[in-house]
Design a protein around this nucleic acid. Sequence first.
DNA 1: CACAAGTCGAACACTGATGTACGAGATGCT
DNA 2: AGCATCTCGTACATCAGTGTTCGACTTGTG
Lengths: 204, 204
Amino acid sequence: MMFNISWEVQAVTTLKRADARKNIESIMDAATACLARDPDVSVADIAKAAGVGRVTLYGHFESRAILVTQVAERAIQQSDEALGAVDLDGDPRAALSRLLEASWRLTQQYGALIVAAEQSMPHEQFQAVHLGLIDRWKPLMERGRGDGSFRDDQPLGWQLTLLQSVLHAASGAVYRGEIKAADAATLIDGTLQAALTPPGATRH
Amino acid sequence: MMFNISWEVQAVTTLKRADARKNIESIMDAATACLARDPDVSVADIAKAAGVGRVTLYGHFESRAILVTQVAERAIQQSDEALGAVDLDGDPRAALSRLLEASWRLTQQYGALIVAAEQSMPHEQFQAVHLGLIDRWKPLMERGRGDGSFRDDQPLGWQLTLLQSVLHAASGAVYRGEIKAADAATLIDGTLQAALTPPGATRH
DNA sequence: CACAAGTCGAACACTGATGTACGAGATGCT
DNA sequence: AGCATCTCGTACATCAGTGTTCGACTTGTG
């Protein structure tokens, strides 16, 4: 599987003609942007946004599902790298702030792409990569729960769901104009730090 | 508008034949259940779930959009009544708990119906009824922010979005089996009470 | 009982989206 | 320069969902 992916990238970057490579780039970028806004966007709209004909798009991607999968795989890989670069050591609450800020950037960038991926990718494959992303959170949360930084009177799974949910809600709120994008990071951090504070403790 | 609605109800409940009324009931109940699970469910599936033919359904509802609108209007009206019956006096935190419990029941019952309504109803009409429901929350939140029960260092609009988001997240978590339905109410209350506690205060 | 009202399935037209076929024309590559 | 590669528009087949029509049948109601 891993070998297949790298082989395809190899093919894209060396075997094809230069204009074809440029178009493939445009298509994937346009698809990322379109799918981030609307997970059900049509292939025709993606092609239009990429500035290529619909037929050209099908020349590079066999089907809509394959296009979505490719785009999602790239986004997930990039997200995984971005989250992996975050320093999770030291005070769990400070580490959570850093992880939230990085995650917020990714949420803004990719938005509803995850919904499209869930619909288009094979269920087990999506499950696998999704769990991979969640695992970026788990160790920090477990450590914080262990040393009393975070409350542990709720299931860890619920708290992880909550994190995602608040990020998603902020994305929607910015999209609807309810809050300014610049304020979102502060609101997210302030809200989730409060929600994770152990009962009986006093927040700084 | 109000007159139109009551006129239609009148027609449904008195002018039509008994079996027709029963079928209309079945269709609206089935549509409610189906749309709560999948906002994009087809008319054919709704008819099947209601135990009637697709043509019969179209005999009672001119179009899918009208059916969804009718179903949503009934759900919203019922929700409005349920929320209106909640005692919002006394300690704001206790009142919030009561309001959350009632809202959780409605969220479980209607789920994704709100998404379907947003897609099928005229934008302004949806906006109106939706704002009507939110207004059930606003006075309590404002009172709690004023007397120091809830934090007021975040926009009220954000806190209202957060409430909805957490309810929705809990619904999804139950659906996916991550948490048990019986535990959901406690988790929701515990999470949101914490998120709304003013900085510097100590939670009981 | 008799008729109006209602139900049902099959068939049809229409729409929007996906995916394919073809052929003419443009363009990168050597 | 010349050829393989690529692009593009148009047209077509297919599919799923919506909404309608028709005619035969069933059932509630006066």
